[in-house]
Design a protein around this nucleic acid. Structure first.
Lengths: 188, 188
DNA sequence: TCATTAAATTAACCTCGGTTAATTATCTTT
DNA sequence: AAAGATAATTAACCGAGGTTAATTTAATGA
C-alpha cells in the first residue's frame, strides 16, 4: 500500500513547520557527466533524490577492476545503506552518467521525520522491502541465469536505460567484461 | 538501534490481549530432515521463526538444476518476501536440512500488530534494512569475488553452518557445481 | 558386521569468459 | 572535414568451471 509517491523531499506529507526544516536541510546540487558524487570509502551520511539524469553505483576492487551495483535514474532515491547502518565508509562510488540534478539531505533529518510521521514510517518500510526484493531478484539472476540470459532480461526490462548507458557499463553491471558482452551480442 | 531481540513470536513487546491473539495464531510445527516445508510456486502467506534446526531456501530451474538462496538457522525469522508483497507464489522452496521446530504465523496477523505497535514497526524496518544489506553484500560477492573467494569468505564467516551442511549444498549456495567446489578445495 | 546407499573425489573433454593486443567504428572538437 | 579520443569489435590464447562417468570414501540400516 503506497501512501504517496515521492517526487522530491519537499513533497513529504509532513507539517508546514517540518517542511520548512526540510527545505532548509535539502540542498539541490548539479553535477556534470563523469563527475564522482561520492567516493568509495568516504562516509556517506546523506540521502539523495535524483531529479534528472542517471548515475551508477560502482565498486572498485583492489586489482583495479570495476563492477556496477546499480543504475539510479530520475525519480529514484538512493544512498549508502551500509554507511547509514554502520557509520562506516561507503562500499561504492556514485558517478554521474549524464549531467544530473539531485536533492541531498542528511540521513539524520530523514530519520527524525520517520520517527515522527507514521506515513513516512510506512514509506520507509515499503522502501526497504522493495529494495530487499530487488536485491533478492538480482541474487536469483546471478544464481540461476547465465550472463547471456541476464543480458537479455535486462534489455527487456530496461530498454530506456540501455539506450542511455555505455555497453561497457552494462557489462560491468552484468558481471562480465565488456569484451564478453560484445561477444554475446554477436553470437548467432 | 535494536529495540528487542526476537526469541519467538510470543515474545513480542505487545499488550496482554494481543499476546493472547498471537498465541492463538502461532502454530509450532516439527519437520524431519529432508522434508519440504513449502514448495516453490505455492503462495506462502506465513512468517516463520526457526526455534531449532536449519533449513535451506532453494530455487529449482526449468532444466532441473537447483540453487540455494540462503540458509536459515535457529533464532532467525524467514518467509517469502515476494509472496508477501505480490500475493503470488513463492519463488523458492524451503527444505529442512535437520529435524526442525518452527513457529508459524500468518503474515496478516503480524501486519496488524506492526500497524499498532511503534516498537514492532521499528523492528520491521530494521529487519528489512538488515535483509537488504545482506542481499547487497551477496550482490557484491557475486560481482567482485571469484567462486574460490566466495568459498573462503563463507567458511570464515560461517564455520558452524559449514559443519552442518553437505558440501554439495554449499556449492549450490556459492553458485557453482559440487564438482567445481571439490576441485577448488583441493587446488594447491 | 556387512550391505546398500549417499557423498565426495578424480579424470577427460568441452564451453564460456578473462586477458592482451590489434583493428575498426563512433564521437568530439576544433 | 580532418584529427584525436573514446567505444566497440575481433582474434588468439589460456584457465576456470560445466558435463559425464567412473572411482573412492563415508554414512546408514538391517
Amino acid at each position: 500500500m503506497k501512501i504517496f509517491s515521492l517526487s522530491g523531499f519537499e513533497k513529504f506529507p509532513i507539517s508546514v513547520s517540518d517542511n520548512v526544516l526540510v527545505k532548509q536541510s535539502v540542498k539541490v546540487l548539479r553535477f556534470n557527466k563523469n563527475d564522482t558524487i561520492t567516493h568509495q570509502g568516504e562516509v556517506c551520511s546523506d540521502i539523495y533524490f535524483m531529479r534528472t539524469g542517471l548515475v551508477k553505483l560502482s565498486y572498485s576492487t583492489l586489482e583495479g577492476k570495476e563492477f556496477i551495483k546499480s543504475f539510479i535514474r530520475d525519480g529514484e532515491m538512493f544512498g549508502s545503506l551500509y554507511s547509514h547502518l554502520t557509520g562506516g565508509g561507503s562500499t561504492f562510488s556514485i558517478v554521474a552518467l549524464e549531467d544530473i540534478e539531485v536533492e541531498v539531505m542528511p540521513f539524520s533529518i530523514l530519520q527524525g521525520l520517520i520517527e515522527k510521521y507514521p506515513a513516512l514510517q510506512q514509506f520507509a518500510l515499503s522502501f526497504f522491502q522493495q529494495l530487499a526484493l530487488k536485491k533478492e531478484i538480482r541474487e536469483y539472476e546471478f544464481l540461476c541465469l547465465s550472463a547471456q540470459e541476464r543480458y537479455e532480461k535486462f534489455c527487456q526490462k530496461n530498454p530506456e536505460i540501455v539506450e542511455r548507458i555505455k555497453q561497457a557499463d552494462l557489462a560491468l553491471y552484468l558481471g562480465v567484461t565488456p569484451i564478453a558482452l560484445s561477444r554475446m551480442k554477436h553470437r548467432q
